[in-house]
Design a protein around this nucleic acid. Structure first.
Length: 488
RNA sequence: GGGGGCAUAACUCAGUUGGUAGAGUAGCUGGCUUUUAACCAGUAGGUCCAAGGUUCAAGUCCUUGUGCCCUCACCA
């Protein structure tokens, strides 16, 4: 990107400075009011003098009269600059004004002849001179690549984008509120991990110079959060940015936000209750509430009713329904795996169930529109979950599906250090390159000091926001999705 | 990584059969005291993504590369 600016802009800058006007004044404006607040109370306040600050996004100029549209976080208000009314020098500033500039207007609240509530300026001050033109006012900036690369332009040039992203903020606040209701504490754990774990994913590598130490960007905060349970922090959560060195798609970004929360003396079914509440409150915060009080999300031309309680079905039942075979019918499964071309890549339960789960993902998951909790996953593929007491074939685990996507994953946390060590060692032997690279012995030692029985849950926040806001692509809910560098 | 598509002015887009590059908006100059996509007149603005190739002639056809989008695979 060159730093060539249009000559006329540079000329205006020079003219302003020659006239003793600072195009980038330092002093913050005082007693500034928001556009929408002024407009809401306009009738009662007509005749009052107010000060408005904002970006000029519209201008309709006449010889001795100009209408300016000022845009701020709250909305838009029209300023009218009438030569007869403004103080010496302010009107001349209009000559140097461009769309995109930030200005401060002080003036009287008054309606125009057409009845539009406006600020009739008596004084105008340039707060920031823009050197580049905003996009065409009518079409805005619609190229998806440009919008993502230059989100700073997208946000002011396209209507509805700021409210859209503010809804994501509202969802995050709502999540914090919901967890606070249950006495959770927000914590921060390391992003730089010497050993990566807590999920199956390829990590990003990095390096610390002074310690001459290889590090990974975390793929999940899970193992650190559970160390906190060992330490006696009974209810903790982290809104964690995590990093996975994998493909990019309309539902994958290399860095994304995962909520993980852990609760001592709880189990996976309590985590399902929490998840349900978090999703419902988030939907309310995102504006999914309808006139009849119901919560509806429209995602990819499909409607999802978020009425509680959400459906809960067992993995084995869903498996039978959609795959057509009992998940424990080994003979029939061997046949089916063969016809589907799914290989069992090793000896033992883990590899067997991995292959079986492949069938589940292929045939059952696409049918799970949600909201639905699928419970009791095969224990062999749940290295961090506690096996069910009634039948250790199944783990106390659920995955939550909504909009055809897996949104959450939770279990009763495994707190048997010897079992955990065994699971870790088996994972490391797995030839799968996404499996953890080394046994986290420190985590096993932590468990050996005793971790209370607990439930834990992870929710993919970006995907939740996609569904609640009806965004087809994860890039539409990320302010700055990862892009290849574009030399221009 | 496989398959398909797109790339032209700051922005949004036209560009015919291969024949000298176009519009609207924004910008600039001038006019205008009630507009709200203001209007009127004038003016300026281009590495047609990049590099090759075919051709008398390429924005247009071919090859390769780059970026983005869609889709499949992997994942959350």
């Amino acid at each position: 990107m060159s730093t060539q600016y249009p000559e006329d802009r540079l000329q205006k800058l020079a003219d302003l400075r020659a006239a003793g006007v600072d195009p980038y004044p330092a002093a913050p404006p005082t007693a500034r009011e928001l556009a929408s607040e002024v407009l809401e109370s306009f009738d009662a306040r007509e005749g009052e003098v107010v000060t408005i600050c904002g970006r000029v996004l519209g201008r309709r100029g006449y010889g001795k009269l100009a209408f300016l549209d000022l845009d701020d976080i709250s909305g838009r208000i029209q300023a009218v600059m009438e030569k007869a009314l403004v103080e010496e020098g302010s009107f001349a500033l209009l000559k140097q004004l461009n769309l995109g500039d930030f200005i401060e207007v002080t003036g009287t609240l008054k309606k125009t002849q057409k009845g539009q509530a406006s600020v009739y300026g008596t004084r105008m001050r340039i707060l920031c001179k823009a050197l580049l033109d905003p996009p065409a006012k009518w079409h805005g900036m619609s190229d998806v690549e440009l919008r993502a690369r230059m989100r700073y332009v997208d946000l002011f040039a396209n209507e509805g984008i700021r409210p859209h992203f503010l809804k994501r903020s509202a969802v995050l606040s709502s999540i914090r509120n919901t967890l606070a209701q249950h006495n959770y504490n927000e914590v921060e754990t390391p992003v730089l991990h010497p050993i990566y774990g807590g999920a199956n994913a390829r990590p990003f590598h990095t390096h610390h110079n002074t310690l001459d130490m290889g590090l990974y960007l975390r793929i999940a905060p899970e193992l650190y959060l559970k160390r906190l349970l060992v330490g006696g922090l009974e209810r903790v959560f982290e809104l964690a940015r995590v990093f996975r060195n994998e493909g990019i798609s309309n539902r994958h970004n290399p860095e994304f936000t995962m909520l993980e929360f852990y609760e001592a003396y709880a189990d996976f079914s309590i985590m399902a209750d929490r998840t349900e509440q978090i999703v419902v409150e988030a939907a309310r915060a995102a504006g999914c509430e309808q006139e009849d009080g119901s919560l509806q999300a429209n995602f990819r031309e499909e409607n999802f009713n978020l009425a509680t309680p959400f459906q809960r079905i067992r993995y084995a039942d869903a498996f039978l329904e959609h795959v057509g075979i009992e998940a424990t019918d080994r003979e029939a499964l061997v046949e089916r795996l063969k016809t589907e071309g799914i290989e069992v890549t090793g000896e033992g339960d883990y590899f067997w169930w991995k292959a079986v789960n492949n069938l589940f993902e292929r045939f059952a998951e696409p049918q799970l529109r949600g909201p639905v909790f699928v419970t009791h996953y095969p224990a062999a593929i749940c290295p961090l979950a506690k096996p069910s007491a009634e039948d250790p074939t199944w783990a106390e685990r659920f995955e939550f599906f909504l909009g055809g996507m897996e949104l959450a994953n939770a279990f009763s946390e495994l707190n048997d250090p010897e079992q955990q060590l065994e699971n870790f060692e088996r994972q490391v032997q797995d030839s799968d390159e996404e499996a953890p690279n080394a046994v986290d012995y420190d985590y096993v030692r932590a468990l050996a000091y005793g971790m209370p029985p607990a439930g834990g849950c992870g929710i993919g926040i970006d995907r939740l926001v996609m569904i609640l806001l009806g965004s087809d692509s994860i890039r539409d809910v990320l302010l700055f999705p990862l892009m290849r560098p574009d030399e221009d």
